[in-house]
């Protein structure tokens, strides 16, 4: 059966599409899982502010909340596109 699998894997099956989609959404949801409810909204608004000045794609702003014992760190990461730097 493994040999048959090898030949068939040349074509993308719906199961592998399912797995790819799941891995992306699950990773994304795990990141925001234990954060406060306002995080997604804040991320959207930050994206709008950044876009006033620089055109960035949807995934350019990442917000991460880290907790150490009694200290919380909000990490904000904005990826600028290469052309924007050149301008």
């Amino acid at each position: 059966m493994r040999i048959l699998d090898f030949f068939r894997n040349n074509r993308k099956t719906s199961a592998s599409t399912a797995k790819d989609r799941l891995q992306i959404i699950v990773a994304q949801e795990r990141m925001t899982r234990n954060g406060p409810d306002y995080l997604p909204m804040m991320k959207e608004e930050l994206l709008l502010v950044v876009r006033k000045y620089i055109q960035v794609p949807d995934g350019a702003v990442t917000v991460k909340l880290d907790k150490d014992d009694d200290c919380e760190v909000l990490e904000l990461n904005i990826m600028l596109p290469e052309q924007a730097e050149a301008e």
Partner: peptide, 16 residues
């Protein structure tokens, strides 16, 4: 259905 690539396999789900 898993063999035909129509269904997520046990490994797919345990990976995720």
């Amino acid at each position: 259905r898993v063999a035909k690539g129509e269904m997520l396999s046990v490994e797919d789900v345990t990976d995720i």
